[in-house]
């Protein structure tokens, strides 16, 4: 049985991370930005678990990833509530339309 090794996993994680970053930077829809954040978090989680399997991190990697998933879900819930609240007040979810506060 062939073993994939650590580096390929890390590279997949890096691709996810970068896609997420670009997504956060370029999307104007607030929910699109949040999707970018999810991608970034998944890249990090994949890193942690790959290190936990092949690296010296051991089981701690899985434990940390577990909490990250939970925290990310909580963050997404609040973010979505804020987006809804914004939509109720402004009737748009375009982040670039949020410019009332620029002076």
């Amino acid at each position: 049985m062939s073993d994939v090794g650590l580096t390929p996993y890390l590279i997949v994680a890096a691709v996810l991370f970068v896609c997420g970053i670009v997504c956060m930077a370029t999307k104007r829809n607030a929910i699109g930005v949040l999707m970018g954040v999810e991608l970034v978090l998944n890249g990090a989680n994949l890193n942690l678990i790959a290190f936990s399997r092949y690296g010296q991190l051991g089981f701690d990697g899985q434990a940390i990833a577990m909490f990250v998933i939970v925290l990310a879900a909580a963050e997404a819930a609040v973010a979505l509530a804020i987006v809804l609240n914004f939509y109720n007040n402004h009737l748009t979810v375009d982040v670039d339309q949020a410019r009332q506060l620029n002076s």
Binding site: A30, V78, A79, I82, F86, N89, A98, Q100, L101
Partner: peptide
């Protein structure tokens, strides 16, 4: 709400 959106 706008401030919260940017912050989050």
């Amino acid at each position: 709400s706008e401030a919260a959106l940017k912050f989050v």
